[in-house]
Design a protein around this nucleic acid. Sequence first.
DNA 1: CCGATTTAGTAAACCGGTTTAGTAAATCGG
DNA 2: CCGATTTACTAAACCGGTTTACTAAATCGG
Lengths: 337, 337
Amino acid sequence: MGYTMMKSVTITDVAKHAKVSKSTVSQYLNKRFDYMGEKTKERIELAIKELGYQPNIVARSLKQKSTSTIGVIVANILHAFSTQVIRAIEDYCHESDFHIIVCNADDNPEKEKKYIEMLLAKQVDGLIVFPTGDNVELYEKMVKDQFPIVFVDRTVDNVNVPAIVLDNEKASSLAVTHLAEKGYERIGIITSSIKRSISARLGRINGFRNSMNEQNLPINEDYIKSAEINEIQSILEKMLSLHVPPQAILAGNDRVLMEILKYAKANSIKIPNDLAIIGIDDVSFASIYSPALTVISQPAFEMGKQAATLILSSIQKKEVETLVYKFEPTLINRESC
Amino acid sequence: MGYTMMKSVTITDVAKHAKVSKSTVSQYLNKRFDYMGEKTKERIELAIKELGYQPNIVARSLKQKSTSTIGVIVANILHAFSTQVIRAIEDYCHESDFHIIVCNADDNPEKEKKYIEMLLAKQVDGLIVFPTGDNVELYEKMVKDQFPIVFVDRTVDNVNVPAIVLDNEKASSLAVTHLAEKGYERIGIITSSIKRSISARLGRINGFRNSMNEQNLPINEDYIKSAEINEIQSILEKMLSLHVPPQAILAGNDRVLMEILKYAKANSIKIPNDLAIIGIDDVSFASIYSPALTVISQPAFEMGKQAATLILSSIQKKEVETLVYKFEPTLINRESC
DNA sequence: CCGATTTAGTAAACCGGTTTAGTAAATCGG
DNA sequence: CCGATTTACTAAACCGGTTTACTAAATCGG
């Protein structure tokens, strides 16, 4: 036996049942009681109870041109940071009775484009995007149309959208300084691919170079690598079998960190004795790992909350400053350096 | 400067611009070209291009009584299993151009109820629920209304809804058998709270008892505990300071597993020498942990895909068998036993 | 060549709400 | 007591699509 739609109860049914017009029922639903008789109110309330009426949000959205929904497009859902931010956005939006639709662009600009178009067609009231960076025209069109949008994690050159990002230079500098203090000198950094230039990754590499200079440490280009996740193992192989290998490595994000740990385990490399490791992004198991992992943490919850706040303000037509909101990274000192 | 809605382009604008009726444009959009002249087609296509028209999905949904959206309510998003299943559902729905709205009930039946009602009001075409189990009336109403719904992870007594679950008895039995083979005799199990009876947890505990009996191992009630996550540390404290403590513990899910690992690290308990550990649910870091974690894994991706398949069939009014779809757990033998 | 059929397109109703403009009855002020 | 105001409620337009019923022109068959 297949599914058959129950003939659902509409506002018209309620109106008939309560012997009033549907306008009046609508007023009731929207709590506009200014000039509503006591018995009328009661009759409507009763009718709603008796019929088990639930308003149709789609119909309301059509007329009101607002869906109380915001779209969230993350570049890659596999990063712990993404899920943390999403959770924060969700929590905060929920307080304002907004809902979110999450899409994963999978680091693919085509997919990102398709999702943006779909979400706009679905009439979301705003968009929070971890931009791949490769749909500049589309971003610009939304800016021109004054559609509410905020970026997270990354900025896009010449696109005038408020962005919530980590102070990436600072993050690297925190890591390098920490390692320098511990006496490490030959320090490397591995990030995810920068074939498509991605502001966060570039920022971390820049910060690394600057900070190495400040600490008067030598920069060895063989210690600075960016690659796809599935290439990290062979990158490590090469880097660690150099004549003079690095003593410490900064992992550009959680996925790189996990690859390094995998390599270390497979090759019985002792952390921190054989190799010190520090990661950007806190991971769920950082404190229970042996050794516990020293990490530069992003205030993901704060950043998600800020993104939500900005998008809601923008939707409510409040003034929103189009600037880069930089958040401070924190060093969580544990045992891997 | 705040946000001002661009007067958006509607089907009427396209119709005027192409000098046809909006019915014709609608036919075009829906690719019903049966009796449409070549030049008409071209004129409409051109008009759409020139005006940058995007159809309003909300309007379409209202008339068609279908939103191509399915709601997913998870009991608790903090479990790795939930996110894995969600990702599978997402992937699969995406192929059929369906979108999902994910809500987190936070193990709270009130929240679950609110979300179900909200999603119904939003006119989702179907619901995939990890049920808290405490909204039986609501579940039953949906069954009565023949609304497409499937449960995941848990069944609910006397509620006639297809359910995608792990063979929980088997999972425990796999774990116990493995431990028995390794020579462990004093085996314990810790699960999340069963104050509200939750089929998956009950099943795992039952399976544990049965399997211990089959293996002719003694069941010690002091080794069988269920509690909230924040109580696990003190539970462990007590259990491991018993006169005769357990030699091995089965963690009922990933969060319990992490608590045990946390305790072990804090108290310098060597795994597996001082205490063997086996968990239900694979965790991201299982293979890179030291020791690598032996685990009973759920086929989360398959289960999510099955859930999606069933809900889509049900929406397309295909016959769907209302039964419990049990999936096989797998032992992943690593180093923690 | 004429009635039947096919082709091409349109007007209007509809989906289920919200909102605007308006009306009738009750109350008020002088 | 009568015009102005307030109170309580409603009819109809509207949101932007889809769908049904209908029409006019072109083509077909005998």
